[in-house]
Amino acid sequence: MGRSSVFTFQYIAIDTEAGVTPEEFETFVRGEGVHLPLYPGWRWTLLRGLRGERTGQYLMLYEIESAEQRDRYVTARGEQTEPARQF
């Protein structure tokens, strides 16, 4: 049986009270965010709500090569493992 990807997501809130606009945030992600370190075997995509109750909100979608890769860095309770802290 082959391995299959695991997907997880995280809501991203931008600090509009500090004056950060959605345009500034997206510019940052395109220019600088692509250089953020990621755990081996992980990839991310930034999603933005276009319609409905999530319009203008952001979500980080992570694709992880396998459950084993996920479990190496994140516990079942969503906490970092020792290898994640060392990373």
Rank of each mutant, 00 (worst) to 15 (best):
V6E: 12
R43Q: 14
T8L: 12
L61W: 02
E26C: 01
T21Q: 05
L47K: 07
T75A: 02
V6H: 08
R3D: 12
F7K: 05
G41D: 03
V34N: 03
Q69C: 02
P40F: 14
A76M: 05
P37L: 08
G2K: 08
R72V: 09
P37Q: 09
Q86C: 11
V34I: 14
S5G: 03
M1Y: 06
V34R: 06
G2Y: 06
S5T: 04
P37R: 08
T55G: 06
E79G: 08
E79L: 10
Q69F: 01
Y73S: 06
Y39C: 13
F87K: 11
T55A: 14
D15C: 09
G78E: 00
I12D: 01
Y58W: 04
G33H: 02
R70W: 10
Q86N: 12
G2S: 14
R43I: 02
R48H: 09
R30D: 09
E53L: 04
E63P: 14
A76V: 14
E79T: 14
T27N: 09
E79Q: 15
W44H: 15
S66I: 11
Q10H: 11
E23I: 05
T55K: 13
P22Y: 00
E24R: 07
E63R: 12
V20P: 14
L36K: 02
L50R: 07
G49D: 02
A76W: 05
V29A: 04
L59T: 00
A76I: 09
V74K: 12
L36I: 07
A84L: 08
E63I: 15
S4N: 05
Q57D: 04
G2F: 03
T45Q: 11
R85Q: 15
L47S: 06
R48S: 15
V6L: 13
W44S: 13
G31M: 07
H35E: 07
E24W: 01
S66K: 11
P37A: 05
Y39L: 06
E65A: 15
E17T: 12
E23Y: 03
A13D: 12
P83A: 07
E26M: 01
Q10D: 09
R43C: 06
T27D: 13
Y62N: 00
R72C: 15
T27V: 10
M1N: 09
L61M: 14
Y58E: 00
E79D: 11
I14H: 10
E82W: 10
I12C: 04
S4I: 05
G78M: 01
E17G: 09
Q57M: 06
I12W: 03
R30P: 06
F87A: 15
Y39F: 13
S4R: 07
A67T: 04
M60A: 13
Q86D: 12
G78C: 01
D71M: 04
D15P: 10
P37W: 02
T21R: 07
T45E: 14
V34H: 02
A18M: 07
E65D: 13
E32F: 10
E53C: 03
T45K: 15
V29R: 00
D71C: 02
Y58P: 05
E53Q: 05
D15M: 05
V34K: 05
D15F: 08
R54S: 13
P22D: 01
D71L: 07
E32S: 14
L59I: 01
E65S: 11
A84T: 14
T81L: 15
R30N: 12
A18D: 15
P22H: 01
R51P: 03
F25T: 00
V34L: 09
G49F: 01
H35S: 09
P83W: 05
S4Q: 06
E17S: 12
L47R: 11
S4K: 08
T16K: 07
